[in-house]
Amino acid sequence: MQSSQNSIQKVREQTDSVMLFCSLGKDSLVLLDLIYPHFNKIVCVFMYFVRGLEHVERWVDWAKAKYPKIEFVQVPHWNLTYILRSGMYCVANPKTRLLKLRNVVDAMRLKYGIHYCFLGMKKADGMNRNLMLKGYASNNYENDGLVYPLAEWTQKNILAYMKQHKLPQPVRYGKKASNGIGFNIDCFLWLRENYPQDLLKIYKVFPLSKRILWEYDQKNKDESIARA
């Protein structure tokens, strides 16, 4: 889309070094592919809930092999602060300082000395995203160094680009639009079936999350008994 090229070109006129917040999902992989030819240095920032999951590391290795100029850095997800403070599936730590995405962006800017940061958010992601991104339209979807080249893309556009440029489909834990790692049954079932070793790593950090699959199995067992 022309709006994407305008956003990227505007940043390229200012610098040859940028950051990309890369979740390794469809949107961020498409955005990485879009911006890669235009910049000499791209720092990809992946925010994790549990570090060192094998199925995630395989995608990190794939990205570094396909795009050798990138630097890939992994940092704790800002949402972890809310999980740790509230004690969701772990022992609560009320002293945990709550963070937002902007705090992570500012920390990465300070560490790497890079101002411009690309994010793969789209208007089609929901009403709040739509309202936010509409406010940046007159400035080529850029706001204080935060750049959103995919703002006008739809999921159909994303899938068409991936097919045209032969990008592989990332991990899909379930059928929902939001498809990252999280404390939900779709994700835990996928991990148990495909990467049980990663599930054990999650249990080590969040031991009480074992309850997710236990409750699921117990419910299915009770329903089977009732049908018998």
Rank of each mutant, 00 (worst) to 15 (best):
R12N: 13
M121Q: 07
G126Q: 04
R85M: 05
L32F: 04
R109P: 07
K163H: 10
K175V: 14
Y148I: 01
K66C: 13
S178L: 08
K176Q: 11
S7D: 04
K41C: 12
I225A: 13
K134D: 15
E215R: 08
H165M: 11
K201L: 13
F118R: 04
L99S: 04
P196R: 03
I202V: 13
K134F: 07
W153P: 11
A151H: 03
F118E: 06
I185G: 03
L131S: 09
F21L: 11
K111N: 07
M19F: 06
F39M: 08
V104T: 14
K64V: 00
F206W: 03
D106I: 03
L84H: 11
Y112T: 00
H77D: 01
V50D: 02
L99F: 05
K221D: 15
Q9D: 06
S4G: 01
Q218A: 14
V18P: 09
D16L: 11
D125T: 07
K166L: 11
G126H: 07
G126V: 06
D217R: 06
L200R: 13
K66M: 12
N6M: 02
K66W: 03
S86T: 15
A228C: 15
I225L: 14
P168W: 00
P170S: 07
E152V: 07
V205W: 03
L133C: 09
G174D: 02
F183G: 06
K176N: 10
P196A: 06
M88I: 15
W153E: 05
P37G: 03
G180S: 08
K69C: 09
A228M: 13
V18N: 06
V50Q: 01
V171S: 09
A124Q: 00
P37T: 09
Q155Y: 12
S224D: 15
K69S: 13
N140C: 13
Y48P: 08
Y48V: 04
D61A: 08
M162G: 00
P168C: 04
A107R: 06
L191K: 04
E193R: 12
C187F: 11
Y195Q: 05
L20I: 10
R109W: 09
D222P: 02
L53A: 13
C187M: 12
M1H: 05
L167D: 03
G182S: 12
S17I: 06
D144K: 11
Q169G: 09
C90G: 10
H77M: 07
H77Y: 06
F206E: 05
W190C: 14
G120M: 01
A107Q: 11
P76H: 01
T15I: 10
A63Q: 05
G135A: 09
L31E: 02
F72S: 01
I70M: 01
G145H: 09
N40F: 06
I185D: 05
V43I: 14
D27L: 03
V45G: 03
V18E: 10
K64R: 14
K210M: 10
E142S: 12
H165V: 02
S23H: 01
F206G: 02
Q74T: 10
L84R: 08
Q5T: 07
L29T: 00
A63T: 09
S7N: 03
Y203W: 15
